[in-house]
Design a protein around this nucleic acid. Sequence first.
DNA 1: TCCCGTTATTCCAATAATGGAACGACACTG
DNA 2: CAGTGTCGTTCCATTATTGGAATAACGGGA
Lengths: 318, 318
Amino acid sequence: MMCQGVIQVNAALAMVGAVSLSDPSNPTTRVMDVLKFLAAHPTERFTLAEIARHVGLSNGSAHRLLTTMAAGQFLSRHEKHRTYSLGLSLVAIGQAAIAGHQGIEIARRELARLAAELDMQCSANCLADEEIVVLVKEGRPQSHLGLTRVGERRPLMPPVGLCHVAWGEQTLIDDYIGKARPFMAASVLDHLRDALPLIRARGYAVCANGPGAAASRQVLVTASDQVRDDAYWTRVHELIGQLSADEIQLVDLARAEEAGVSYMAAPVFSPAATVAFQLVVTGLPTDLDPRKIEACAQRLCAAAAVVTAEMHGRHPAG
Amino acid sequence: MMCQGVIQVNAALAMVGAVSLSDPSNPTTRVMDVLKFLAAHPTERFTLAEIARHVGLSNGSAHRLLTTMAAGQFLSRHEKHRTYSLGLSLVAIGQAAIAGHQGIEIARRELARLAAELDMQCSANCLADEEIVVLVKEGRPQSHLGLTRVGERRPLMPPVGLCHVAWGEQTLIDDYIGKARPFMAASVLDHLRDALPLIRARGYAVCANGPGAAASRQVLVTASDQVRDDAYWTRVHELIGQLSADEIQLVDLARAEEAGVSYMAAPVFSPAATVAFQLVVTGLPTDLDPRKIEACAQRLCAAAAVVTAEMHGRHPAG
DNA sequence: TCCCGTTATTCCAATAATGGAACGACACTG
DNA sequence: CAGTGTCGTTCCATTATTGGAATAACGGGA
């Protein structure tokens, strides 16, 4: 029956607040979309027309939007080339946001320590509106693939964001699995479902490397430069279908020796006992033996625990 | 005749882009206003009604605005207390904005060095839509008055923002002086006018301490907590009228021994040869002799020059 | 516990923003 | 140097958002 799916979707929407549903063209959303788009490309500059295309605006609307934002220094405008990028006001606002979330600075400190100890790439990301947003990055700057650049956004789809999902609300879990279902073999889907309790029990998530993970990375990274059109989503969905069980969650750490570990993640909890953000370690050597991996994971969890503690977070009861 | 004033105002508006004029209730502006308000109070949390009052919105509009922004993690919502503050997405966007403005990190480094050397409070601020926005702060954290907190905003009025004005466009100068004119004695106004070429020649601005400066600080600081209503502007205007010539710009450094220096500022130029932001030193000891003040100023200018150079800025030809 | 002031949320008519096209300007190219 | 495509800007009727009041849900105090 199709009914169940519909009910789930409605529940999720009611949960979120139904704003995105009833407002097909919310002006607030457009402002945020412009900022999100520009934040995903911090070093580039875009013309009015480019931005209009990327966020789906008419030139006329984009013109007033960008002019207004530039007037307030939310965007900085390069007069010569008529291009826009994030403005200085956002620097101030970003600093203020950090001041309001003590966890961020603590996380940065711990991630830097972690990156130095393990000589790996460490980052933190949070969940924003069905997307994963990179908040902090420490360690070897700008990996060869430019994989995780602060401000970048990726859709919440396997195999990323598992910590957000594993400790998230039931509706989020249902949504996550629901989005993956059409593209996964039944056995792999079951593996994904079973992975969540395991992640909760272990306290961290670990994904194996492999052709699916690599291809997925490739697409997601290169795709961050382009519009998320139907072709993009088709590719993403195809890639999800190609993921192996180990690439979704590595149950048996011994199997890591085959292809290595793609990433490990551990959650940081907020005072409200929800996942504030997750700490991620990537760029692990491929020749790590299970013992080393276990040690890395424990070190990562320790860092996450420190951050949780210092920001007065609480581990959810269950 | 009144005509001249009107002409000036129209010129200024045409300059800015006339967006703020023709759009009495621009939805983009409202988003920015909410962010600006929350950024000015990074550590506090506000209810929907409070925010609606402060930015001048109806509860209904504020509700959808805040809900939408919270859904995208532009605001974080405290479910228990139903309060809002800046969200994690803004952390990412702020980091991205910093990545796009190389000058910021260089400025932070130089300001930190400066603060350490001089044991004073150093900050950087930029001009945004007729307001001064604090971008960076280094040195003794949170002065006794909480004078300059990152994200805070102050109206562009004497005696602040002189570097922005002195090297700014003629329309900005006219606007600045025009706004001050109604509240200043003619002689003081002349002093202000004459100060701008002096600042350009010296390469920095320096204001003396005194009753006017102190009172002004007091009002501006305490006022950052409240709505900018008519009463607020009346007080600001009164205070501007009370400023002495030395409090606007200290022509003779020897006179500093009387009351000390309120602040010193030097401009950092962008590649387009405009003022990107200004570096400010505050919290100077009151017992500095003119030689020491001169040395401080030169050290400040050196820092500004380093930042300008490293971000490939150009000093304006004139 | 109840009450009361405040707050969050929903709804609809009034209002202001939007999108599309047309214009003017620019840069690039052959 | 002219042609051509793209870009930025302006304009107006259509359309979606806004503001205000009514409603519901708190939360603090006695």
